[in-house]
Simulated scan of single mutants.
Amino acid sequence: MKISREQIRLTGAPFHGVILGKQAIPLGQIDLPVTFGDRSNFRIETLTFEVVDFSGSYHTILRRPCYAKFMAVLNYVYLKLKMPRPKGVITIGPSFPHARLWNKDRCQLASKIIMKADLTEIKRNVALTAPDSNKSTDAAAFQSAKETKEVDINDSSSTKTPCVATV
Score class of each variant (00 low, 15 high):
3 I>S: 07
3 I>V: 13
6 E>P: 11
6 E>Q: 10
7 Q>T: 04
10 L>H: 13
10 L>Q: 10
12 G>N: 00
13 A>T: 14
13 A>S: 09
13 A>G: 08
16 H>G: 12
16 H>M: 10
16 H>A: 15
16 H>I: 06
17 G>N: 03
18 V>G: 03
18 V>E: 02
19 I>Q: 00
19 I>K: 06
19 I>S: 14
20 L>M: 05
20 L>K: 12
24 A>P: 00
24 A>T: 14
24 A>I: 11
25 I>G: 06
28 G>C: 02
28 G>E: 00
29 Q>H: 14
32 L>E: 10
32 L>G: 14
36 F>K: 04
37 G>S: 10
37 G>P: 09
40 S>L: 03
40 S>E: 04
41 N>S: 02
42 F>L: 07
46 T>W: 08
48 T>V: 08
49 F>N: 05
49 F>C: 02
49 F>L: 06
51 V>N: 05
51 V>W: 02
55 S>I: 01
55 S>F: 00
56 G>V: 00
56 G>R: 00
58 Y>F: 10
59 H>W: 07
59 H>P: 06
60 T>L: 13
60 T>C: 15
62 L>H: 00
66 C>H: 05
66 C>W: 01
66 C>E: 10
67 Y>I: 05
67 Y>A: 05
67 Y>C: 14
68 A>Y: 05
68 A>F: 03
69 K>T: 10
70 F>C: 05
70 F>T: 06
71 M>N: 07
74 L>M: 03
75 N>R: 04
77 V>Y: 10
77 V>N: 15
78 Y>L: 05
78 Y>A: 02
78 Y>F: 04
80 K>T: 05
81 L>G: 11
82 K>Y: 03
83 M>S: 10
84 P>L: 00
87 K>N: 09
87 K>M: 07
89 V>A: 10
92 I>V: 15
92 I>R: 11
96 F>T: 13
97 P>H: 06
99 A>S: 08
99 A>W: 06
99 A>E: 13
100 R>T: 07
106 R>E: 14
107 C>F: 12
108 Q>I: 06
108 Q>A: 15
108 Q>L: 12
108 Q>P: 11
108 Q>W: 13
110 A>Y: 00
111 S>G: 13
112 K>H: 03
112 K>M: 03
114 I>H: 08
115 M>K: 03
115 M>I: 09
117 A>F: 04
118 D>P: 00
121 E>R: 04
123 K>G: 10
123 K>R: 13
124 R>V: 01
124 R>N: 01
124 R>A: 02
126 V>N: 03
128 L>P: 02
128 L>M: 04
129 T>W: 07
130 A>D: 01
131 P>V: 14
131 P>H: 04
133 S>P: 02
133 S>R: 11
134 N>C: 11
136 S>E: 07
136 S>Y: 05
137 T>N: 01
137 T>P: 00
137 T>G: 03
137 T>D: 01
137 T>W: 03
138 D>G: 12
140 A>H: 14
141 A>V: 15
142 F>L: 13
143 Q>D: 04
145 A>V: 08
147 E>W: 03
147 E>M: 01
148 T>Q: 15
149 K>A: 13
149 K>P: 00
151 V>E: 09
151 V>L: 11
152 D>A: 13
154 N>G: 14
155 D>G: 02
158 S>C: 05
160 K>E: 09
160 K>Y: 04
162 P>Q: 13
163 C>D: 12
163 C>W: 11
165 A>M: 12
167 V>D: 05
167 V>K: 14
